[in-house]
Simulated assay, not measured.
Amino acid sequence: MLDLSEDRLYAALSNRDPAYEGRAFVGVTSTGIFCRLTCPARKPKPQNCRWFTSANAAQAAGFRPCKRCHPAGATAEGDADVTRLRAAIEADPARRWSEADVAEMGMDPSTIRRAFRRHFGMTFLQMAREARLREGARRMAGGDAVIEAQLDAGFDSASGFRQAFARLFGHPPAAMRGGGGLVADWIDTPLGGMIAVADDAALHLLEFTDRKALKGQLAKLSKDAGGRIGLGQSEMTRETARQLAGFFAGDRARFDLTLSPHGTTFQRRVWDALIRIPAGETRSYAEVAQAIGQPTATRAVARANATNGIAIVIPCHRVIGADGSLTGYAGGLWRKEKLIAVERGYASPESA
Protein backbone atom coordinates (compact mmCIF):
# COMPACT_ATOMS: atom_id res chain seq x y z
CA MET A 1 0.00 0.00 0.00
CA LEU A 2 1.08 3.55 -0.64
CA ASP A 3 2.53 5.54 2.24
CA LEU A 4 0.04 8.37 2.87
CA SER A 5 1.94 10.09 5.66
CA GLU A 6 2.29 13.86 5.24
CA ASP A 7 6.07 13.69 4.84
CA ARG A 8 5.82 11.05 2.13
CA LEU A 9 3.01 12.91 0.36
CA TYR A 10 5.03 16.11 0.30
CA ALA A 11 8.02 14.20 -1.08
CA ALA A 12 5.76 12.72 -3.77
CA LEU A 13 4.48 16.21 -4.60
CA SER A 14 8.03 17.56 -4.84
CA ASN A 15 9.07 14.69 -7.13
CA ARG A 16 5.82 14.60 -9.12
CA ASP A 17 5.54 10.89 -8.31
CA PRO A 18 3.06 9.23 -10.75
CA ALA A 19 2.43 6.38 -8.28
CA TYR A 20 0.05 8.70 -6.40
CA GLU A 21 -2.10 9.57 -9.42
CA GLY A 22 -5.74 9.26 -8.42
CA ARG A 23 -4.81 8.25 -4.87
CA ALA A 24 -3.84 11.59 -3.31
CA PHE A 25 -4.45 15.29 -3.94
CA VAL A 26 -3.05 18.44 -2.35
CA GLY A 27 -5.08 21.48 -1.37
CA VAL A 28 -3.07 24.70 -1.13
CA THR A 29 -4.48 26.91 1.63
CA SER A 30 -2.75 30.05 0.36
CA THR A 31 -4.51 29.87 -3.03
CA GLY A 32 -7.63 27.80 -2.35
CA ILE A 33 -6.71 25.48 -5.24
CA PHE A 34 -6.18 21.71 -5.21
CA CYS A 35 -3.90 19.75 -7.54
CA ARG A 36 -2.64 16.34 -8.51
CA LEU A 37 0.72 15.49 -6.97
CA THR A 38 2.14 15.46 -10.51
CA CYS A 39 1.08 19.05 -11.21
CA PRO A 40 3.87 21.09 -12.88
CA ALA A 41 2.94 24.23 -10.95
CA ARG A 42 5.29 25.73 -8.36
CA LYS A 43 5.27 23.68 -5.18
CA PRO A 44 3.65 25.17 -2.05
CA LYS A 45 5.27 25.26 1.36
CA PRO A 46 4.55 22.20 3.52
CA GLN A 47 2.57 24.26 6.05
CA ASN A 48 0.20 25.37 3.25
CA CYS A 49 -0.72 21.83 2.20
CA ARG A 50 -3.83 19.84 3.01
CA TRP A 51 -4.05 16.28 1.78
CA PHE A 52 -7.05 14.46 0.33
CA THR A 53 -7.68 10.98 -1.03
CA SER A 54 -10.17 12.11 -3.68
CA ALA A 55 -11.00 15.14 -5.79
CA ASN A 56 -14.51 15.15 -4.34
CA ALA A 57 -13.14 15.47 -0.80
CA ALA A 58 -10.95 18.41 -1.81
CA GLN A 59 -13.87 20.18 -3.46
CA ALA A 60 -16.11 19.48 -0.46
CA ALA A 61 -13.48 21.23 1.69
CA GLY A 62 -13.82 24.34 -0.48
CA PHE A 63 -10.82 23.98 -2.80
CA ARG A 64 -11.10 24.76 -6.53
CA PRO A 65 -9.54 22.45 -9.16
CA CYS A 66 -6.27 23.59 -10.70
CA LYS A 67 -6.53 24.74 -14.32
CA ARG A 68 -3.12 23.28 -15.16
CA CYS A 69 -3.45 19.66 -14.00
CA HIS A 70 -7.28 19.31 -14.04
CA PRO A 71 -7.47 17.16 -10.91
CA ALA A 72 -11.25 16.70 -11.09
CA GLY A 73 -10.98 14.91 -14.46
CA ALA A 74 -9.54 11.61 -15.54
CA THR A 75 -5.82 11.10 -14.96
CA ALA A 76 -4.84 11.40 -18.63
CA GLU A 77 -6.59 14.77 -18.88
CA GLY A 78 -4.06 16.20 -16.46
CA ASP A 79 -1.37 15.91 -19.12
CA ALA A 80 -1.85 18.74 -21.62
CA ASP A 81 0.51 17.19 -24.20
CA VAL A 82 -1.31 13.86 -24.09
CA THR A 83 -4.66 15.61 -24.50
CA ARG A 84 -3.32 17.64 -27.43
CA LEU A 85 -1.95 14.61 -29.27
CA ARG A 86 -5.08 12.53 -28.73
CA ALA A 87 -7.12 15.38 -30.19
CA ALA A 88 -4.75 15.44 -33.19
CA ILE A 89 -5.39 11.72 -33.81
CA GLU A 90 -9.15 12.24 -33.62
CA ALA A 91 -8.96 15.20 -36.02
CA ASP A 92 -6.98 13.25 -38.64
CA PRO A 93 -7.07 9.49 -37.90
CA ALA A 94 -5.49 8.58 -41.25
CA ARG A 95 -2.34 10.65 -40.66
CA ARG A 96 0.95 8.78 -40.55
CA TRP A 97 2.81 10.16 -37.50
CA SER A 98 6.51 10.05 -36.63
CA GLU A 99 8.52 11.11 -33.61
CA ALA A 100 9.86 13.97 -35.73
CA ASP A 101 6.28 15.28 -36.00
CA VAL A 102 5.99 15.17 -32.21
CA ALA A 103 9.27 17.08 -31.83
CA GLU A 104 8.09 19.71 -34.34
CA MET A 105 5.10 20.36 -32.05
CA GLY A 106 7.56 21.28 -29.27
CA MET A 107 7.33 18.04 -27.31
CA ASP A 108 10.03 15.59 -26.30
CA PRO A 109 9.31 12.24 -28.03
CA SER A 110 10.74 10.14 -25.19
CA THR A 111 8.62 11.99 -22.62
CA ILE A 112 5.53 11.51 -24.79
CA ARG A 113 6.35 7.84 -25.23
CA ARG A 114 6.53 7.30 -21.46
CA ALA A 115 3.37 9.35 -20.81
CA PHE A 116 1.26 7.38 -23.30
CA ARG A 117 2.55 4.07 -21.97
CA ARG A 118 1.71 5.16 -18.42
CA HIS A 119 -1.82 6.27 -19.27
CA PHE A 120 -2.80 3.87 -22.05
CA GLY A 121 -0.33 0.97 -22.10
CA MET A 122 0.87 1.91 -25.59
CA THR A 123 2.93 4.62 -27.23
CA PHE A 124 1.50 7.57 -29.13
CA LEU A 125 2.71 6.11 -32.43
CA GLN A 126 1.02 2.80 -31.65
CA MET A 127 -2.22 4.61 -30.87
CA ALA A 128 -1.98 6.53 -34.15
CA ARG A 129 -1.41 3.27 -36.03
CA GLU A 130 -4.51 1.76 -34.43
CA ALA A 131 -6.49 4.78 -35.63
CA ARG A 132 -5.25 4.25 -39.21
CA LEU A 133 -6.14 0.58 -39.01
CA ARG A 134 -9.64 1.51 -37.86
CA GLU A 135 -10.07 3.82 -40.84
CA GLY A 136 -9.06 1.03 -43.18
CA ALA A 137 -11.51 -1.36 -41.55
CA ARG A 138 -14.33 1.11 -42.05
CA ARG A 139 -13.55 1.44 -45.74
CA MET A 140 -13.42 -2.32 -46.20
CA ALA A 141 -16.69 -2.81 -44.34
CA GLY A 142 -18.20 -0.39 -46.84
CA GLY A 143 -17.05 -2.56 -49.73
CA ASP A 144 -13.84 -0.81 -50.79
CA ALA A 145 -11.01 -2.82 -52.25
CA VAL A 146 -8.17 -3.71 -49.90
CA ILE A 147 -5.69 -1.47 -51.70
CA GLU A 148 -8.06 1.53 -51.57
CA ALA A 149 -8.64 0.98 -47.87
CA GLN A 150 -4.90 0.67 -47.33
CA LEU A 151 -4.21 4.00 -49.04
CA ASP A 152 -6.97 5.78 -47.14
CA ALA A 153 -5.62 4.42 -43.85
CA GLY A 154 -2.20 5.93 -44.50
CA PHE A 155 -0.17 2.70 -44.69
CA ASP A 156 2.72 2.89 -47.12
CA SER A 157 2.30 -0.67 -48.38
CA ALA A 158 -0.52 -3.13 -48.90
CA SER A 159 1.54 -5.79 -47.12
CA GLY A 160 1.86 -3.54 -44.04
CA PHE A 161 -1.89 -3.08 -43.97
CA ARG A 162 -2.57 -6.80 -44.32
CA GLN A 163 0.01 -7.65 -41.66
CA ALA A 164 -1.61 -5.24 -39.21
CA PHE A 165 -5.00 -6.86 -39.76
CA ALA A 166 -3.55 -10.35 -39.55
CA ARG A 167 -1.95 -9.57 -36.18
CA LEU A 168 -5.26 -8.29 -34.86
CA PHE A 169 -7.72 -10.82 -36.28
CA GLY A 170 -5.56 -13.83 -37.06
CA HIS A 171 -6.14 -13.72 -40.82
CA PRO A 172 -5.65 -11.12 -43.57
CA PRO A 173 -8.34 -8.58 -44.47
CA ALA A 174 -9.30 -10.13 -47.83
CA ALA A 175 -10.43 -13.27 -46.03
CA MET A 176 -12.79 -11.26 -43.87
CA ARG A 177 -14.87 -9.72 -46.60
CA GLY A 178 -16.87 -12.86 -47.26
CA GLY A 179 -18.16 -12.77 -43.71
CA GLY A 180 -19.61 -15.63 -41.75
CA GLY A 181 -21.73 -16.16 -38.69
CA LEU A 182 -19.98 -13.38 -36.78
CA VAL A 183 -19.13 -9.87 -37.96
CA ALA A 184 -16.77 -7.33 -36.40
CA ASP A 185 -17.46 -3.61 -36.49
CA TRP A 186 -15.67 -0.53 -35.16
CA ILE A 187 -17.70 1.70 -32.82
CA ASP A 188 -16.53 5.16 -31.84
CA THR A 189 -17.07 6.24 -28.22
CA PRO A 190 -15.88 9.23 -26.17
CA LEU A 191 -13.29 6.86 -24.65
CA GLY A 192 -11.89 5.66 -27.95
CA GLY A 193 -12.67 3.05 -30.56
CA MET A 194 -14.19 -0.31 -29.67
CA ILE A 195 -14.59 -3.53 -31.62
CA ALA A 196 -18.01 -5.15 -31.43
CA VAL A 197 -18.38 -8.76 -32.59
CA ALA A 198 -21.90 -10.08 -33.00
CA ASP A 199 -24.25 -12.14 -35.06
CA ASP A 200 -27.85 -11.14 -35.70
CA ALA A 201 -28.97 -12.56 -32.35
CA ALA A 202 -26.36 -11.58 -29.74
CA LEU A 203 -23.29 -9.54 -28.85
CA HIS A 204 -20.26 -11.78 -28.36
CA LEU A 205 -17.49 -9.26 -27.71
CA LEU A 206 -17.13 -5.53 -27.09
CA GLU A 207 -13.63 -4.31 -26.36
CA PHE A 208 -11.44 -1.25 -26.74
CA THR A 209 -9.24 -1.51 -29.81
CA ASP A 210 -6.06 -0.79 -27.85
CA ARG A 211 -6.52 -3.54 -25.27
CA LYS A 212 -3.54 -5.91 -25.34
CA ALA A 213 -5.70 -9.02 -24.94
CA LEU A 214 -7.90 -8.17 -27.93
CA LYS A 215 -5.97 -10.27 -30.44
CA GLY A 216 -6.30 -13.38 -28.29
CA GLN A 217 -10.00 -12.71 -27.70
CA LEU A 218 -10.66 -12.38 -31.43
CA ALA A 219 -8.70 -15.53 -32.19
CA LYS A 220 -10.72 -17.48 -29.61
CA LEU A 221 -13.98 -16.16 -30.99
CA SER A 222 -12.98 -17.12 -34.52
CA LYS A 223 -12.12 -20.64 -33.34
CA ASP A 224 -15.39 -20.94 -31.40
CA ALA A 225 -17.28 -19.84 -34.51
CA GLY A 226 -15.61 -22.59 -36.53
CA GLY A 227 -13.85 -20.18 -38.86
CA ARG A 228 -13.24 -16.57 -39.60
CA ILE A 229 -14.93 -13.45 -38.32
CA GLY A 230 -16.31 -11.24 -41.08
CA LEU A 231 -15.88 -7.49 -41.22
CA GLY A 232 -19.11 -5.53 -41.38
CA GLN A 233 -22.29 -4.76 -39.48
CA SER A 234 -25.28 -6.62 -38.13
CA GLU A 235 -28.41 -5.29 -36.50
CA MET A 236 -26.85 -6.21 -33.16
CA THR A 237 -23.67 -4.16 -33.78
CA ARG A 238 -25.80 -1.20 -34.89
CA GLU A 239 -27.99 -1.49 -31.78
CA THR A 240 -24.88 -1.75 -29.60
CA ALA A 241 -23.59 1.50 -31.10
CA ARG A 242 -26.96 3.20 -30.50
CA GLN A 243 -27.13 2.10 -26.87
CA LEU A 244 -23.51 3.09 -26.17
CA ALA A 245 -24.25 6.55 -27.56
CA GLY A 246 -27.24 6.82 -25.23
CA PHE A 247 -25.18 5.69 -22.26
CA PHE A 248 -22.51 8.33 -22.79
CA ALA A 249 -25.15 11.00 -23.48
CA GLY A 250 -26.68 10.37 -20.05
CA ASP A 251 -29.88 8.84 -21.44
CA ARG A 252 -29.38 5.13 -20.70
CA ALA A 253 -28.41 3.66 -17.34
CA ARG A 254 -29.03 0.07 -18.43
CA PHE A 255 -28.26 -1.82 -21.63
CA ASP A 256 -30.91 -3.95 -23.30
CA LEU A 257 -28.79 -6.25 -25.44
CA THR A 258 -28.77 -10.02 -25.82
CA LEU A 259 -25.31 -11.13 -24.72
CA SER A 260 -23.32 -14.25 -25.50
CA PRO A 261 -20.12 -13.95 -23.43
CA HIS A 262 -17.52 -16.65 -23.97
CA GLY A 263 -16.34 -18.01 -20.64
CA THR A 264 -16.61 -20.73 -18.03
CA THR A 265 -19.69 -21.29 -15.90
CA PHE A 266 -17.98 -19.52 -12.98
CA GLN A 267 -16.97 -16.54 -15.12
CA ARG A 268 -20.50 -16.15 -16.43
CA ARG A 269 -21.85 -16.15 -12.88
CA VAL A 270 -19.45 -13.34 -11.98
CA TRP A 271 -20.39 -11.40 -15.11
CA ASP A 272 -24.10 -11.81 -14.31
CA ALA A 273 -23.40 -10.36 -10.85
CA LEU A 274 -21.63 -7.38 -12.41
CA ILE A 275 -24.65 -6.60 -14.57
CA ARG A 276 -26.78 -6.45 -11.41
CA ILE A 277 -24.64 -3.63 -9.93
CA PRO A 278 -26.69 -0.46 -10.51
CA ALA A 279 -25.11 2.31 -12.55
CA GLY A 280 -23.62 4.89 -10.20
CA GLU A 281 -22.65 2.27 -7.60
CA THR A 282 -19.49 0.22 -7.07
CA ARG A 283 -18.64 -3.06 -5.35
CA SER A 284 -15.45 -4.62 -4.02
CA TYR A 285 -14.24 -7.98 -5.26
CA ALA A 286 -15.19 -9.48 -1.91
CA GLU A 287 -18.73 -8.12 -2.24
CA VAL A 288 -19.08 -9.69 -5.69
CA ALA A 289 -17.83 -12.99 -4.27
CA GLN A 290 -20.51 -12.73 -1.55
CA ALA A 291 -23.14 -11.96 -4.20
CA ILE A 292 -22.46 -15.20 -6.09
CA GLY A 293 -22.45 -17.22 -2.88
CA GLN A 294 -18.70 -17.95 -2.81
CA PRO A 295 -17.25 -15.56 -0.22
CA THR A 296 -13.78 -17.15 -0.33
CA ALA A 297 -13.45 -16.79 -4.11
CA THR A 298 -12.25 -13.17 -4.11
CA ARG A 299 -9.19 -13.86 -6.24
CA ALA A 300 -11.14 -15.94 -8.72
CA VAL A 301 -13.68 -13.14 -8.97
CA ALA A 302 -10.85 -10.69 -9.73
CA ARG A 303 -9.57 -12.96 -12.50
CA ALA A 304 -13.06 -13.31 -13.98
CA ASN A 305 -13.47 -9.55 -13.81
CA ALA A 306 -10.22 -9.08 -15.72
CA THR A 307 -11.22 -11.53 -18.47
CA ASN A 308 -14.59 -9.93 -19.20
CA GLY A 309 -14.83 -9.55 -22.98
CA ILE A 310 -17.92 -7.34 -23.17
CA ALA A 311 -16.69 -4.05 -21.72
CA ILE A 312 -19.06 -1.39 -20.36
CA VAL A 313 -22.18 -3.49 -21.03
CA ILE A 314 -20.88 -6.04 -18.52
CA PRO A 315 -19.65 -3.34 -16.13
CA CYS A 316 -16.39 -4.68 -14.70
CA HIS A 317 -15.39 -1.03 -14.20
CA ARG A 318 -17.81 -0.90 -11.24
CA VAL A 319 -15.58 -3.21 -9.19
CA ILE A 320 -12.98 -1.41 -7.07
CA GLY A 321 -10.51 -2.26 -4.32
CA ALA A 322 -11.65 -2.85 -0.75
CA ASP A 323 -9.92 0.40 0.24
CA GLY A 324 -11.89 2.38 -2.37
CA SER A 325 -9.02 2.57 -4.88
CA LEU A 326 -9.84 2.04 -8.54
CA THR A 327 -7.33 -0.83 -8.91
CA GLY A 328 -6.64 -2.29 -12.33
CA TYR A 329 -8.80 -2.03 -15.44
CA ALA A 330 -7.86 -3.74 -18.68
CA GLY A 331 -9.05 -0.77 -20.70
CA GLY A 332 -6.88 1.64 -18.69
CA LEU A 333 -7.51 3.37 -15.37
CA TRP A 334 -8.23 6.64 -17.16
CA ARG A 335 -11.23 4.96 -18.80
CA LYS A 336 -12.38 3.51 -15.49
CA GLU A 337 -12.28 7.00 -13.99
CA LYS A 338 -14.32 8.35 -16.91
CA LEU A 339 -16.90 5.56 -16.79
CA ILE A 340 -17.47 5.99 -13.06
CA ALA A 341 -17.78 9.75 -13.59
CA VAL A 342 -20.39 9.21 -16.35
CA GLU A 343 -22.37 6.92 -14.07
CA ARG A 344 -22.55 9.38 -11.20
CA GLY A 345 -25.41 10.95 -13.12
CA TYR A 346 -27.24 7.62 -12.97
CA ALA A 347 -26.96 7.25 -9.20
CA SER A 348 -30.49 8.47 -8.45
CA PRO A 349 -33.58 6.33 -9.20
CA GLU A 350 -34.88 9.02 -11.55
CA SER A 351 -31.86 8.54 -13.82
CA ALA A 352 -32.32 4.79 -14.14
Rank of each mutant, 00 (worst) to 15 (best):
A115D: 06
A115W: 00
F116V: 03
R117H: 08
H119T: 06
H119L: 05
H119G: 02
F120M: 15
F120R: 14
G121R: 06
M122F: 08
M122A: 15
M122P: 04
T123Q: 09
T123G: 15
T123F: 09
L125Q: 12
Q126W: 05
Q126H: 12
M127N: 05
M127Q: 12
M127C: 07
M127Y: 05
A128H: 09
A128Y: 07
R129Q: 14
R129E: 15
R129S: 14
E130H: 08
E130P: 01
A131Q: 06
A131D: 10
R132M: 03
R132N: 03
L133I: 10
L133R: 11
E135C: 07
E135V: 13
G136T: 06
R138Y: 00
R138F: 00
R139M: 01
M140T: 05
A141R: 00
A141W: 01
A141M: 02
G142E: 15
G143V: 08
G143I: 11
A145L: 06
V146K: 02
V146H: 02
V146L: 05
V146M: 07
I147V: 11
A149T: 11
A149N: 09
Q150R: 13
L151P: 01
L151Y: 07
A153C: 13
G154W: 01
G154N: 02
F155K: 11
F155H: 14
D156K: 08
D156Q: 07
D156C: 03
S157I: 02
S157E: 01
A158G: 14
A158W: 08
A158R: 15
S159N: 07
G160K: 00
F161W: 02
R162D: 15
R162G: 13
R162P: 08
Q163L: 14
Q163H: 14
Q163S: 15
Q163F: 08
Q163V: 14
Q163G: 12
Q163K: 13
A164Q: 07
A164S: 14
F165P: 09
A166H: 14
A166W: 09
R167C: 08
L168F: 04
F169N: 07
F169R: 03
